[in-house]
Design a protein around this nucleic acid. Structure first.
Lengths: 161, 161
DNA sequence: GGGCACTTCTTGAAGCTTCAATGAAAGTCC
DNA sequence: GGACTTTCATTGAAGCTTCAAGAAGTGCCC
Protein backbone atom coordinates (compact mmCIF):
# COMPACT_ATOMS: atom_id res chain seq x y z
CA UNK A 1 0.00 0.00 0.00
CA UNK A 2 2.99 2.32 0.15
CA UNK A 3 4.61 4.27 -2.64
CA UNK A 4 6.67 1.30 -3.69
CA UNK A 5 3.76 -0.97 -4.36
CA UNK A 6 1.01 1.27 -5.62
CA UNK A 7 0.63 2.80 -9.07
CA UNK A 8 0.67 6.47 -9.89
CA UNK A 9 -2.41 8.06 -11.40
CA UNK A 10 -0.81 7.96 -14.79
CA UNK A 11 0.28 4.36 -14.50
CA UNK A 12 -3.19 3.37 -13.48
CA UNK A 13 -4.68 5.13 -16.47
CA UNK A 14 -2.19 3.45 -18.74
CA UNK A 15 -2.82 0.05 -17.24
CA UNK A 16 -6.57 0.40 -17.68
CA UNK A 17 -6.19 1.56 -21.25
CA UNK A 18 -3.93 -1.38 -21.96
CA UNK A 19 -6.37 -3.84 -20.42
CA UNK A 20 -9.25 -2.39 -22.38
CA UNK A 21 -7.33 -2.46 -25.62
CA UNK A 22 -6.18 -6.06 -25.21
CA UNK A 23 -9.56 -7.27 -24.03
CA UNK A 24 -11.37 -5.64 -26.92
CA UNK A 25 -8.76 -6.74 -29.41
CA UNK A 26 -8.77 -10.38 -28.37
CA UNK A 27 -12.54 -10.44 -28.43
CA UNK A 28 -12.60 -8.80 -31.80
CA UNK A 29 -10.13 -11.20 -33.37
CA UNK A 30 -11.73 -14.23 -31.78
CA UNK A 31 -15.05 -13.19 -33.21
CA UNK A 32 -13.64 -12.48 -36.62
CA UNK A 33 -12.00 -15.88 -36.81
CA UNK A 34 -14.89 -17.71 -35.26
CA UNK A 35 -17.16 -16.22 -37.87
CA UNK A 36 -14.89 -16.68 -40.89
CA UNK A 37 -13.00 -19.79 -39.93
CA UNK A 38 -14.86 -21.44 -37.07
CA UNK A 39 -11.89 -21.37 -34.76
CA UNK A 40 -10.56 -19.16 -31.97
CA UNK A 41 -7.55 -16.96 -32.43
CA UNK A 42 -5.15 -19.31 -30.66
CA UNK A 43 -6.02 -22.13 -33.00
CA UNK A 44 -5.27 -19.94 -35.96
CA UNK A 45 -1.94 -19.04 -34.40
CA UNK A 46 -1.10 -22.72 -34.10
CA UNK A 47 -1.82 -23.40 -37.76
CA UNK A 48 0.11 -20.31 -38.73
CA UNK A 49 3.13 -21.28 -36.65
CA UNK A 50 3.09 -24.80 -38.03
CA UNK A 51 2.91 -23.52 -41.59
CA UNK A 52 6.24 -21.78 -41.16
CA UNK A 53 8.05 -24.67 -39.56
CA UNK A 54 10.32 -26.83 -41.69
CA UNK A 55 8.18 -29.56 -43.21
CA UNK A 56 5.16 -27.87 -41.66
CA UNK A 57 5.65 -30.02 -38.61
CA UNK A 58 6.74 -29.47 -35.07
CA UNK A 59 7.17 -31.35 -31.82
CA UNK A 60 4.33 -30.74 -29.40
CA UNK A 61 6.51 -29.17 -26.75
CA UNK A 62 8.21 -26.89 -29.22
CA UNK A 63 4.88 -25.78 -30.62
CA UNK A 64 3.55 -25.13 -27.13
CA UNK A 65 6.58 -23.03 -26.29
CA UNK A 66 6.42 -21.04 -29.47
CA UNK A 67 2.72 -20.38 -28.95
CA UNK A 68 3.27 -19.56 -25.27
CA UNK A 69 0.71 -22.04 -24.01
CA UNK A 70 0.77 -25.11 -21.80
CA UNK A 71 1.23 -28.56 -23.21
CA UNK A 72 -2.16 -29.49 -21.90
CA UNK A 73 -3.87 -26.69 -23.73
CA UNK A 74 -2.03 -27.59 -26.88
CA UNK A 75 -2.99 -31.20 -26.54
CA UNK A 76 -6.67 -30.34 -26.38
CA UNK A 77 -6.36 -27.86 -29.21
CA UNK A 78 -4.57 -30.31 -31.46
CA UNK A 79 -7.23 -32.92 -30.77
CA UNK A 80 -9.84 -30.53 -31.99
CA UNK A 81 -7.87 -29.45 -35.03
CA UNK A 82 -7.14 -33.08 -35.79
CA UNK A 83 -10.87 -33.71 -35.70
CA UNK A 84 -11.26 -31.04 -38.34
CA UNK A 85 -8.53 -32.60 -40.42
CA UNK A 86 -6.33 -29.53 -40.38
CA UNK A 87 -3.58 -31.25 -38.43
CA UNK A 88 -2.26 -34.75 -37.88
CA UNK A 89 -0.23 -36.40 -35.11
CA UNK A 90 2.76 -38.55 -35.93
CA UNK A 91 5.08 -40.46 -33.69
CA UNK A 92 8.42 -38.83 -33.20
CA UNK A 93 11.13 -41.00 -34.73
CA UNK A 94 13.82 -40.00 -32.24
CA UNK A 95 11.87 -39.99 -29.00
CA UNK A 96 9.17 -42.53 -28.44
CA UNK A 97 7.43 -40.31 -25.90
CA UNK A 98 7.16 -37.57 -28.43
CA UNK A 99 4.56 -36.57 -30.95
CA UNK A 100 4.99 -34.46 -34.02
CA UNK A 101 2.16 -32.22 -35.05
CA UNK A 102 1.84 -31.90 -38.82
CA UNK A 103 -0.18 -29.36 -40.76
CA UNK A 104 -2.17 -31.33 -43.32
CA UNK A 105 -2.73 -30.18 -46.88
CA UNK A 106 -6.32 -29.47 -45.98
CA UNK A 107 -5.11 -27.44 -43.03
CA UNK A 108 -2.75 -25.49 -45.22
CA UNK A 109 -5.46 -24.81 -47.76
CA UNK A 110 -7.74 -23.61 -45.02
CA UNK A 111 -5.02 -21.38 -43.63
CA UNK A 112 -4.45 -19.83 -47.03
CA UNK A 113 -8.16 -19.20 -47.26
CA UNK A 114 -8.52 -17.46 -43.91
CA UNK A 115 -5.21 -15.67 -43.55
CA UNK A 116 -6.05 -12.60 -45.63
CA UNK A 117 -9.18 -11.84 -43.67
CA UNK A 118 -7.38 -12.24 -40.40
CA UNK A 119 -4.43 -10.14 -41.43
CA UNK A 120 -6.81 -7.46 -42.63
CA UNK A 121 -8.47 -7.47 -39.23
CA UNK A 122 -5.13 -7.12 -37.47
CA UNK A 123 -4.05 -4.37 -39.78
CA UNK A 124 -7.30 -2.48 -39.37
CA UNK A 125 -7.19 -2.80 -35.60
CA UNK A 126 -3.53 -1.98 -35.07
CA UNK A 127 -1.24 -0.89 -37.84
CA UNK A 128 -3.69 1.31 -39.68
CA UNK A 129 -4.21 3.23 -36.47
CA UNK A 130 -0.57 3.70 -35.50
CA UNK A 131 2.28 5.60 -37.06
CA UNK A 132 5.33 3.59 -38.09
CA UNK A 133 7.10 5.05 -35.10
CA UNK A 134 4.37 3.94 -32.74
CA UNK A 135 4.37 0.44 -34.20
CA UNK A 136 8.06 0.19 -33.62
CA UNK A 137 7.64 1.32 -30.05
CA UNK A 138 4.88 -1.15 -29.47
CA UNK A 139 7.20 -3.91 -30.64
CA UNK A 140 9.95 -2.73 -28.38
CA UNK A 141 7.67 -2.49 -25.36
CA UNK A 142 6.14 -5.89 -26.07
CA UNK A 143 9.54 -7.51 -26.20
CA UNK A 144 10.52 -5.94 -22.89
CA UNK A 145 7.38 -7.14 -21.18
CA UNK A 146 7.57 -10.64 -22.66
CA UNK A 147 11.18 -10.99 -21.55
CA UNK A 148 10.17 -10.59 -17.96
CA UNK A 149 7.62 -13.38 -18.02
CA UNK A 150 8.27 -17.07 -18.27
CA UNK A 151 6.33 -19.79 -20.00
CA UNK A 152 3.36 -21.29 -18.27
CA UNK A 153 4.14 -24.90 -17.32
CA UNK A 154 7.61 -23.73 -16.42
CA UNK A 155 8.68 -26.55 -18.68
CA UNK A 156 12.30 -25.70 -18.27
CA UNK A 157 12.06 -24.27 -14.77
CA UNK A 158 10.87 -27.28 -12.78
CA UNK A 159 12.05 -25.86 -9.47
CA UNK A 160 9.62 -23.02 -9.80
CA UNK A 161 6.54 -25.10 -10.34
CA UNK B 1 -2.47 -11.11 -50.42
CA UNK B 2 -1.18 -7.91 -52.00
CA UNK B 3 0.81 -5.13 -50.43
CA UNK B 4 -2.33 -3.53 -49.05
CA UNK B 5 -3.43 -6.50 -47.03
CA UNK B 6 -0.26 -8.19 -45.92
CA UNK B 7 2.09 -7.13 -43.13
CA UNK B 8 5.67 -6.03 -43.54
CA UNK B 9 8.43 -8.06 -41.92
CA UNK B 10 8.66 -5.53 -39.15
CA UNK B 11 4.94 -5.39 -38.56
CA UNK B 12 4.81 -9.14 -38.36
CA UNK B 13 7.59 -9.19 -35.80
CA UNK B 14 5.84 -6.53 -33.79
CA UNK B 15 2.53 -8.33 -33.94
CA UNK B 16 4.06 -11.59 -32.75
CA UNK B 17 5.88 -9.86 -29.92
CA UNK B 18 2.67 -8.17 -28.90
CA UNK B 19 0.75 -11.44 -28.95
CA UNK B 20 3.42 -13.17 -26.92
CA UNK B 21 3.54 -10.39 -24.38
CA UNK B 22 -0.20 -10.24 -23.89
CA UNK B 23 -0.61 -14.00 -23.78
CA UNK B 24 2.12 -14.40 -21.21
CA UNK B 25 0.92 -11.46 -19.20
CA UNK B 26 -2.67 -12.58 -19.02
CA UNK B 27 -1.60 -16.07 -18.03
CA UNK B 28 0.74 -14.70 -15.44
CA UNK B 29 -1.84 -12.44 -13.84
CA UNK B 30 -4.54 -15.07 -13.95
CA UNK B 31 -2.25 -17.48 -12.16
CA UNK B 32 -1.19 -14.92 -9.59
CA UNK B 33 -4.78 -14.08 -8.75
CA UNK B 34 -5.99 -17.65 -8.89
CA UNK B 35 -3.30 -18.60 -6.42
CA UNK B 36 -3.67 -15.64 -4.05
CA UNK B 37 -7.35 -14.87 -4.41
CA UNK B 38 -9.02 -17.84 -6.04
CA UNK B 39 -10.39 -15.82 -8.92
CA UNK B 40 -9.42 -14.99 -12.49
CA UNK B 41 -8.16 -11.59 -13.49
CA UNK B 42 -11.46 -10.44 -14.95
CA UNK B 43 -13.27 -11.10 -11.70
CA UNK B 44 -10.75 -9.02 -9.85
CA UNK B 45 -11.29 -6.24 -12.36
CA UNK B 46 -15.01 -6.37 -11.68
CA UNK B 47 -14.54 -6.02 -7.94
CA UNK B 48 -12.03 -3.27 -8.49
CA UNK B 49 -14.33 -1.36 -10.81
CA UNK B 50 -17.23 -1.71 -8.42
CA UNK B 51 -15.15 -0.48 -5.53
CA UNK B 52 -14.63 2.85 -7.27
CA UNK B 53 -18.24 3.39 -8.26
CA UNK B 54 -20.39 5.70 -6.17
CA UNK B 55 -21.91 3.61 -3.41
CA UNK B 56 -19.80 0.70 -4.64
CA UNK B 57 -22.68 -0.29 -6.87
CA UNK B 58 -23.33 -0.27 -10.57
CA UNK B 59 -25.97 -1.30 -13.05
CA UNK B 60 -25.15 -4.56 -14.78
CA UNK B 61 -24.98 -3.04 -18.23
CA UNK B 62 -22.79 -0.20 -17.09
CA UNK B 63 -20.43 -2.58 -15.36
CA UNK B 64 -20.26 -4.77 -18.44
CA UNK B 65 -19.44 -1.78 -20.59
CA UNK B 66 -16.78 -0.50 -18.26
CA UNK B 67 -15.19 -3.94 -18.07
CA UNK B 68 -15.51 -4.42 -21.85
CA UNK B 69 -17.32 -7.70 -21.60
CA UNK B 70 -20.71 -9.01 -22.69
CA UNK B 71 -23.70 -8.88 -20.41
CA UNK B 72 -23.86 -12.63 -20.51
CA UNK B 73 -20.33 -13.03 -19.31
CA UNK B 74 -20.95 -10.54 -16.57
CA UNK B 75 -24.09 -12.31 -15.52
CA UNK B 76 -22.24 -15.59 -15.06
CA UNK B 77 -19.36 -13.86 -13.30
CA UNK B 78 -21.63 -12.03 -10.90
CA UNK B 79 -23.42 -15.26 -10.08
CA UNK B 80 -20.14 -16.79 -9.07
CA UNK B 81 -18.99 -13.77 -7.10
CA UNK B 82 -22.37 -13.63 -5.43
CA UNK B 83 -21.88 -17.25 -4.41
CA UNK B 84 -18.66 -16.20 -2.71
CA UNK B 85 -20.42 -13.36 -0.99
CA UNK B 86 -18.25 -10.66 -2.53
CA UNK B 87 -21.12 -9.12 -4.42
CA UNK B 88 -24.88 -8.84 -4.16
CA UNK B 89 -27.68 -8.18 -6.68
CA UNK B 90 -30.34 -5.63 -5.99
CA UNK B 91 -33.35 -4.60 -8.00
CA UNK B 92 -32.95 -1.31 -9.76
CA UNK B 93 -35.38 1.23 -8.34
CA UNK B 94 -35.80 3.18 -11.58
CA UNK B 95 -36.02 0.36 -14.11
CA UNK B 96 -37.76 -2.83 -13.19
CA UNK B 97 -35.82 -4.80 -15.78
CA UNK B 98 -32.57 -3.69 -14.23
CA UNK B 99 -30.27 -5.10 -11.61
CA UNK B 100 -27.71 -3.29 -9.53
CA UNK B 101 -24.54 -5.10 -8.62
CA UNK B 102 -23.25 -4.14 -5.18
CA UNK B 103 -19.84 -4.84 -3.71
CA UNK B 104 -20.45 -6.29 -0.23
CA UNK B 105 -18.36 -5.43 2.80
CA UNK B 106 -16.86 -8.89 2.61
CA UNK B 107 -16.04 -8.27 -1.03
CA UNK B 108 -14.43 -4.96 -0.22
CA UNK B 109 -12.38 -6.52 2.58
CA UNK B 110 -11.24 -9.24 0.22
CA UNK B 111 -10.32 -6.68 -2.41
CA UNK B 112 -8.24 -4.74 0.09
CA UNK B 113 -6.50 -7.95 1.01
CA UNK B 114 -5.58 -9.00 -2.52
CA UNK B 115 -5.00 -5.67 -4.24
CA UNK B 116 -1.41 -5.11 -3.09
CA UNK B 117 -0.25 -8.46 -4.39
CA UNK B 118 -1.93 -7.91 -7.69
CA UNK B 119 -0.62 -4.40 -8.11
CA UNK B 120 2.85 -5.65 -7.30
CA UNK B 121 2.52 -8.26 -10.01
CA UNK B 122 1.42 -5.64 -12.54
CA UNK B 123 4.20 -3.33 -11.54
CA UNK B 124 6.82 -6.05 -11.74
CA UNK B 125 5.59 -7.21 -15.12
CA UNK B 126 5.13 -3.81 -16.74
CA UNK B 127 6.13 -0.60 -15.09
CA UNK B 128 9.34 -1.80 -13.52
CA UNK B 129 10.48 -2.87 -16.95
CA UNK B 130 9.57 0.28 -18.87
CA UNK B 131 10.86 3.82 -18.71
CA UNK B 132 8.35 6.53 -17.86
CA UNK B 133 8.46 7.54 -21.50
CA UNK B 134 7.67 4.03 -22.66
CA UNK B 135 4.80 3.72 -20.21
CA UNK B 136 3.32 6.92 -21.55
CA UNK B 137 3.63 5.64 -25.09
CA UNK B 138 2.03 2.37 -24.17
CA UNK B 139 -0.92 4.28 -22.78
CA UNK B 140 -1.21 6.37 -25.90
CA UNK B 141 -1.03 3.37 -28.19
CA UNK B 142 -3.53 1.44 -26.11
CA UNK B 143 -6.01 4.27 -26.29
CA UNK B 144 -5.65 4.48 -30.04
CA UNK B 145 -6.23 0.78 -30.49
CA UNK B 146 -9.15 0.66 -28.07
CA UNK B 147 -10.80 3.57 -29.85
CA UNK B 148 -11.00 1.58 -33.03
CA UNK B 149 -12.82 -1.35 -31.48
CA UNK B 150 -16.37 -1.47 -30.26
CA UNK B 151 -17.90 -3.30 -27.33
CA UNK B 152 -18.78 -6.92 -27.73
CA UNK B 153 -22.56 -7.26 -27.68
CA UNK B 154 -22.73 -4.09 -29.72
CA UNK B 155 -25.06 -2.96 -27.01
CA UNK B 156 -25.41 0.45 -28.52
CA UNK B 157 -24.91 -0.55 -32.14
CA UNK B 158 -27.82 -2.93 -32.73
CA UNK B 159 -27.69 -2.60 -36.49
CA UNK B 160 -24.24 -4.13 -36.52
CA UNK B 161 -25.11 -7.25 -34.64
C1' DG C 1 21.73 -52.54 -15.23
C1' DG C 2 18.83 -50.97 -11.44
C1' DG C 3 17.02 -47.16 -9.31
C1' DC C 4 15.59 -42.58 -9.47
C1' DA C 5 14.48 -38.24 -11.28
C1' DC C 6 12.81 -35.93 -15.10
C1' DT C 7 10.47 -35.19 -19.62
C1' DT C 8 6.71 -35.93 -22.93
C1' DC C 9 2.16 -35.94 -23.73
C1' DT C 10 -2.54 -37.08 -22.57
C1' DT C 11 -6.76 -37.24 -19.83
C1' DG C 12 -10.97 -35.90 -17.20
C1' DA C 13 -13.13 -32.76 -14.35
C1' DA C 14 -14.10 -28.20 -13.02
C1' DG C 15 -14.33 -23.52 -14.18
C1' DC C 16 -14.85 -19.78 -17.54
C1' DT C 17 -16.58 -17.85 -21.98
C1' DT C 18 -19.47 -17.71 -25.99
C1' DC C 19 -23.59 -18.11 -28.41
C1' DA C 20 -28.40 -18.23 -29.25
C1' DA C 21 -32.70 -18.04 -27.16
C1' DT C 22 -35.80 -16.25 -23.66
C1' DG C 23 -38.89 -13.46 -20.46
C1' DA C 24 -39.95 -9.24 -18.91
C1' DA C 25 -40.05 -4.29 -18.92
C1' DA C 26 -39.53 0.03 -21.36
C1' DG C 27 -39.81 2.99 -25.29
C1' DT C 28 -41.86 4.37 -29.79
C1' DC C 29 -45.21 5.27 -33.18
C1' DC C 30 -49.62 6.16 -34.86
C1' DG D 1 -54.12 2.36 -26.00
C1' DG D 2 -52.22 -1.26 -28.88
C1' DA D 3 -48.75 -3.12 -31.80
C1' DC D 4 -44.09 -3.14 -32.54
C1' DT D 5 -39.31 -2.61 -31.50
C1' DT D 6 -35.60 -2.28 -28.39
C1' DT D 7 -33.26 -2.92 -24.02
C1' DC D 8 -32.10 -5.45 -19.64
C1' DA D 9 -30.57 -9.36 -17.74
C1' DT D 10 -30.47 -14.28 -17.45
C1' DT D 11 -30.12 -19.19 -18.87
C1' DG D 12 -28.28 -23.63 -20.68
C1' DA D 13 -25.45 -25.86 -23.80
C1' DA D 14 -21.26 -26.20 -26.21
C1' DG D 15 -16.58 -25.03 -26.55
C1' DC D 16 -12.17 -23.62 -24.52
C1' DT D 17 -8.79 -23.42 -20.64
C1' DT D 18 -6.83 -24.82 -16.33
C1' DC D 19 -5.42 -27.94 -13.01
C1' DA D 20 -3.93 -32.15 -11.03
C1' DA D 21 -2.94 -36.70 -12.00
C1' DG D 22 -1.03 -40.37 -14.61
C1' DA D 23 1.17 -43.60 -18.25
C1' DA D 24 5.17 -44.20 -20.74
C1' DG D 25 9.82 -43.22 -22.22
C1' DT D 26 14.42 -41.13 -21.39
C1' DG D 27 18.69 -39.88 -18.96
C1' DC D 28 21.71 -40.20 -15.25
C1' DC D 29 24.47 -41.99 -11.63
C1' DC D 30 26.64 -45.27 -9.16
Amino acid sequence: MNAMTWLTEEEQTTWRAFLHATTLLEDHLDRQLQRDAGMPHMYYALLSTLSEAPGRKMRMTELAEQAKITRSRLSHAVSRLEGNGWVRRENCPTDRRGQVCVLTDAGHTELVRIAPGHVAAVRAAIFDRLTAEQSRRLGEISRLVAEGLHQPDGADVPWLR
